[in-house]
Design a protein around this nucleic acid. Structure first.
Length: 293
DNA sequence: CGGGACTCCTGCCAGC
DNA sequence: TGCTGGCAGGAGTCCC
């Protein structure tokens, strides 16, 4: 399940294959992913030159140059939970590990194929089809339905304890739910919320507004930033469906302190607690009730 | 408007 | 061995 570190890892590996290049041909193998693809999606991309790739929250933004007929546009891509890109270079060397998980017939889920000038082929596969793509005018990007209202980037300069405190003030939801809400902070998902709350020593059940103190919000903001930065360095986490564009796996999952560790001893020195699993708003939450308060 | 429940989809795995 | 049911979860929609 790609969260910010996984999406950032994908963005970085796609960038050299896309930036400065044109789409020679785009093959759309079904009319929709999670949502219908835009009208004439493949035709509108053909011939367009990519200026740069950017990430916002869990979205990859592919900026397209203007043409005589069209203004600058942005291809918005969201991986959902099982979206995966693989890059196949023109020399015939296809990405190793394409079917590394022994997925017979996986090509059934290859929904979009981007052929770039120069011969590089980028395949988007998404067997659960929770991902989606959209094409919007550059001028309308920040106001578009996907991005409007999304909170600050946790790795950006605009994110800090006071900023987080302001966004949690008055919120009656559990802090776990508030952090999963992309309007609070951009890019967090179930895993990194659990890990950040553990590092900050805060209970996931705590009412969000009670975290809006200088001490707690500063501690939590730092924990969020630290865990995301460490995960990016590790190439993200690989669970179930996520893999890099070359089929390689991230390895941050080995660094999880609580996620997926139900009934294990808390890793905090001298804590002595046990990792518990509870369900909050239909999602598993892992935490140590001994040192997370 | 905030918050929670429900929904989409498919693969995988535990349990019978 | 083969089937079934539960689970995984990002984010949109709907309802209170």
């Amino acid at each position: 399940m790609p969260e910010l570190p996984e999406v950032e890892t994908v963005r970085r590996s796609l960038a050299p294959a896309l930036e400065g290049r044109r789409f020679a041909h785009v093959t759309q193998r079904r009319p929709d992913l999670r949502f219908p693809l835009p009208e004439r999606f493949a035709a509108r991309l053909k011939g367009r030159r990519v200026s740069r790739l950017e990430r916002r929250a869990k979205y990859i933004l592919v900026h397209l140059d203007a043409t005589p007929k069209a203004a600058e546009e942005v291809l918005i891509m969201h991986l959902g939970m099982s979206g995966r890109f693989t890059i196949h270079e023109a020399n015939g060397a296809s990405a190793p590990g394409r079917f590394h998980r022994g997925m017979p017939g996986a090509e059934r889920h290859d929904h979009i194929v981007f052929d770039m000038e120069g011969g590089t082929r980028i395949v988007y596969a998404d067997h659960r089809r929770f991902g989606f793509m959209d094409l919007v005018p550059e001028a309308a990007l920040t106001a578009c339905t996907h991005l409007a209202g999304i909170g600050p980037e946790p790795l950006g300069n605009e994110f800090s304890g006071p900023v987080l405190a302001e966004r949690l003030a008055g919120r009656r939801a559990p802090i776990k739910a508030a952090l999963l809400d992309q309007r609070t902070v951009a890019g967090l998902g179930n895993i990194y919320v659990c890990e950040a709350l553990f590092r900050a020593g805060l209970s996931p059940r705590r009412i969000a507004a009670t975290v809006a103190t200088p001490l707690r919000s500063t501690r939590l903001a730092a924990a969020i930033r630290d865990v995301l930065e460490e995960a990016i360095v590790a190439g993200g986490s690989t669970l179930r469906d996520y893999a890099h564009t070359d089929g390689e796996l991230g390895y941050f999952q080995h660094s999880f302190a609580v996620y997926g560790r139900e009934a294990e001893a808390c890793s905090k020195p001298r804590c002595g607690g046990t990792v518990a699993r509870i369900v909050q708003s239909g999602r598993s939450t892992f935490f140590c009730s001994s040192c997370q308060r």
